[in-house]
């Protein structure tokens, strides 16, 4: 079973240092970079599927040139190799371009499943997996909480989280799956994995290499006009009282704010 996993290098949310640059784009130098959290759940699910069914996991990123080091962490978790689409012309790429480029790169690697995190911590549009599926003419199984391929039948079954619980959905493979945290926590890379990752291939591909039908010269479909700091919250009140008194303080606050 061949599984492609989209892994986006993003600013480390734990560092809390994300910021926009003067061009109103993400300032990539401002923060340490990690693999997007939801993509790690996708990668973990992919590794478990390959451990159970054979095959290999390939990670695919579209990212600046220096992102290869972040991709190597995905290799240390157990992915066999990486494909790194990087091209100065893709800097600040919009959603349709990102989708077209990732779909074109995916087309060059035969796969049974393409997995991606349900959204990214620095973008959160949550649209890339659906867009890539549409470009490839493949079914999208989103909000996945479990993934069960049936190689014999050529189908994959997914528990799709719903407002009330989950739906059990099924589609033919190859298919695209948008993965949630409910799939289970990602493993930590072992020392052996970290050593092995050093010699694994990360193939660098330019825009021309992946033959994506995009024309960055025409400009992006969306643009940021301005960015503001969020309104500051007034300093809160801190109380330390015996429980019964504290309870009264809270209820008075709620009554004062007309919440109860």
């Amino acid at each position: 079973m061949q599984i492609l996993v989209l892994t986006k290098p993003v600013p480390d949310p734990a560092a809390g240092a994300e910021r926009l640059g003067p061009d109103l784009r993400l300032d990539r130098a401002a923060s340490p970079t990690v693999v997007n959290g939801n993509d790690e759940y996708a990668l973990e699910a992919a590794l478990q599927l390959v451990e159970a069914n054979g095959g290999e996991v390939i990670v695919l990123s579209m990212a600046p040139a220096n992102a290869a080091e972040t991709m190597r962490k995905a290799l240390a978790m157990g992915a066999a190799r990486g494909i790194h689409v990087t091209d100065p012309a893709l800097e600040g790429a919009d959603m349709p371009t990102t989708i077209a480029v990732l779909a074109a790169a995916a087309k060059q690697e035969p796969f049974d499943l393409l997995l991606a995190g349900i959204d990214t911590s620095d973008g959160t549009g949550g649209a890339v997996a659906a867009g890539v599926a549409a470009r490839l003419g493949m079914p999208l199984l989103s909000a996945a909480a479990s993934i069960e391929p049936d190689a014999g039948a050529g189908t994959v079954r997914v528990k799709r989280l719903s407002a009330k619980g989950y739906d059990v959905i099924e589609a033919p493979m190859p298919a695209v799956i948008a993965c949630t945290q409910a799939l289970g926590a990602p493993r930590y890379p072992s020392l052996k994995g970290i050593m092995a990752a050093r010699s694994r291939e990360i193939a660098s591909r330019s825009l021309a290499d992946v033959s994506a039908e995009v024309a960055p010269g025409d400009g992006w479909a969306t643009k940021v006009l301005e960015a503001d700091a969020p309104p500051a919250r007034a300093a809160g009140r801190v109380v330390q009282q015996p429980a019964a008194e504290a309870a009264k303080t809270v209820v008075d606050f709620l009554a004062d704010r007309r919440i109860i």
Binding site: D119, A130, G131, A134, L161
Partner: peptide, 23 residues
Amino acid sequence: VSQDGRDVAGTLVGLTGLGLLAN
């Protein structure tokens, strides 16, 4: 912004190449 809304938006971006302003 619901799961279905996001899926439709992403599918449309893939099909049409139109820009998306999310969230």
